[in-house]
Nucleic acid binder design. Structure first.
Lengths: 348, 348
DNA sequence: TTGAAAAATGTAAGCGCTTACATTGATCCC
DNA sequence: GGGATCAATGTAAGCGCTTACATTTTTCAA
């Protein structure tokens, strides 16, 4: 049964309480918890019994204050709502856990201003190091991070030109490769559904990759039909509907990620448009759902788990002051499924 | 550029630094941050300028230690990997945010022992109140929570018989209603794919609901073909395959949630089994993907957002010591889509 | 102009913990 | 047996913050 506020809140037991119960000093209690081998077995047992008895849990804030380290890392991802970051983050967390580090997660809703607050918040809460997605953030965020010398790894991106440490892949090149494959199948009226590009360098890079490929094939990137919308299945569906209303109608829609692509697929079905017969659709990320939808989605596979795991290694190395780690580039590859086909013979 | 450990870490600026820079006392700085109207405008501006200048961010631990409140709540969900809890949690977080409360999230991987650690961890980190999923946890967890008088709300369940405050729905009744509808369509050889029932009361209740319905229709619950497996699409697919190998083969598969059902659907397609022609499949939760798959999934709709939002209200009320709130029961309803059809005429 | 009330600010204690240093007692070698 | 060594434990300072209380400054009515 829940207890009301008025009853005097039972003070949480402190080291002092434990010390008294076990008839030792607070220093000994602390040592039992942090360096058990510096305490004799007899007293240790006595202390641990008291700890259990009292339901003692050390106050994290006080501990961080006194010890000046927390074994806590932070991660800020743009969203928890869809599965894009879930797998990578899970792997990241597992790897940290194996090294005794706790992960604090925040989500920024793709808003750099919110992310800035969250960076401060996580650091104030004691994060020793941070995992951030992409490179797009406010100058104030970077100023703060640098001033505080917080180790940071940037994931989901790789830009060899940047001095910042990152682990990820070349979004631009990956999308460019996919666009080439699409065009190689005869498509020359292309459409794209992209996430909001402002504050999202992955989206910008992927978009740029499409333009690169078009230019290389002698197509004018200005002829690209563009719809920009936040990540969600219904948004993908709406954007697809708008694209289909254009004249000329595109024969292939490249989506900035799988979530948008799944929305597009759904809209196509609802509109009775055959995929890939009349229109081809591609995704990006290769999340679980890409294989499930019908037709299954041709997309770019991103090694999420490996990225998460190695991000943890990188960040751990940084925190420990090991020889300065290098950014790492991960390979991506196209997964051939059913949603991409040749351009329709008869102009739609 | 990342800085190596050896260089002396720049101490984070403290209230004292700010006070010195603004030529006021630490008390005034603190007031500027916590009760700006108790400070004259002139000094406030001076202080805030110093804060900005120095990149000051108050140390959370020290603040919690001194002020004895944190405006932080915690939530422990079984998994972040799939979307089951994402929407509800998002709504929960939004509602808390509007009330100036920060949310800390942990995931327990459906393991009560891990959850116990995480409860301690969140409380040690200053969580004033906790959102937990379901009622299944170790006695030690409840002992700790009660000893510390931590306000708790249990979500995703509703059991009027329990004294614990919960917000959710009657998993058993909801699944029972669905099972009745399935049987009303002529199915009498039923199969079920359930999540691991140990440590998961929602899964147990849903399972029990099926048995209830069978008993009410004069079917022997022992004839139910049961596959138990952790939540994941591939696991759902494998379980479905095993079910199809049974003799007699079930004509309807009730899945403990949509994720498993989507896996089953995929397996059916791969095996060339017509859904719902030869076998009907149902889900539970009505997550986004249920509408996307082909055939779309008949499932039980759960009002996730409302549950999250009202969980926040409940917890806030509890924390504030408002008149003891009551558990709330939310309605669910069956969403009719394509994966459920009549039992095949000719015995399969 | 003046004194009392109100507003603004300062002083300092203490939140719960870790840890440098001090102390105690046991162990051991010659 | 006795000093040196070492292990076990204790003492107490202080981490960065808030806040009760004290003090100073401003405001304002008579």
């Amino acid at each position: 049964m829940q207890i009301r506020r008025e009853e005097k809140a039972p003070a949480a037991p402190t080291v002092e309480d434990v010390a008294r119960a076990a008839d030792v000093s607070t220093a000994t209690v602390s040592r039992c918890l942090n360096a058990p081998d510096r305490v004799s077995e007899r007293t240790r047992e006595r202390v641990m019994a008291a700890v259990r008895e009292l339901g003692y849990a050390p106050n994290f804030g006080a501990r961080a204050l006194a010890a000046k380290r927390t074994n806590t890392f932070g991660a800020i991802i743009p969203t928890m709502e869809n599965a894009i970051f879930a797998r990578g983050l899970q792997a990241f967390q597992e790897a940290l856990g194996q090294n005794g580090v706790t992960l604090l997660v925040a989500s920024s809703s793709y808003r750099p201003d919110l992310e800035e607050d969250q960076i401060r918040e996580l650091v104030a809460r004691g994060a020793d190091a941070l995992l951030l997605i992409g490179h797009d953030r406010t100058p104030a965020s970077y100023a703060f991070l640098e001033q505080r010398r917080i180790p940071v790894v940037h994931a989901w991106v790789h830009d060899p030109a940047s001095p910042r440490i990152s682990i990820g892949f070349d979004n631009r090149a990956a999308m460019k490769a996919l666009a080439h494959e699409v065009m190689a199948r005869g498509h020359d009226r292309l459409g794209v559904i992209t996430a909001a590009r402002e504050g999202n360098d992955r989206a910008r890079e992927r978009f740029a990759g499409i333009c690169d490929a078009m230019a290389e094939r002698g197509l004018d990137p200005a002829s690209l039909a563009v719809e920009e919308t936040p990540y969600s299945i219904p948004n993908g569906a709406e954007a697809f509907t708008r694209l289909m209303a254009r004249d000329p109608r595109p024969t292939a829609i490249l989506c900035g990620n799988d979530v948008l692509a799944v929305g597009a697929l759904g809209a196509a079905r609802k509109m009775g448009i055959d995929v890939p017969g009349s229109v081809s659709i591609t995704g990006f990320d290769d999340i679980e759902i890409a294989e499930i939808v019908q037709p299954s989605l041709t997309t770019v596979h991103v090694p999420h788990r490996e990225m998460g795991r190695r991000a943890a290694e990188l960040l751990l190395a940084l925190r420990n002051g090991d020889a300065a780690p290098q950014s790492v580039a991960l390979p991506t590859h196209i997964v051939w499924r059913d949603s991409l086909g040749p351009a329709p013979k008869t102009p739609a």
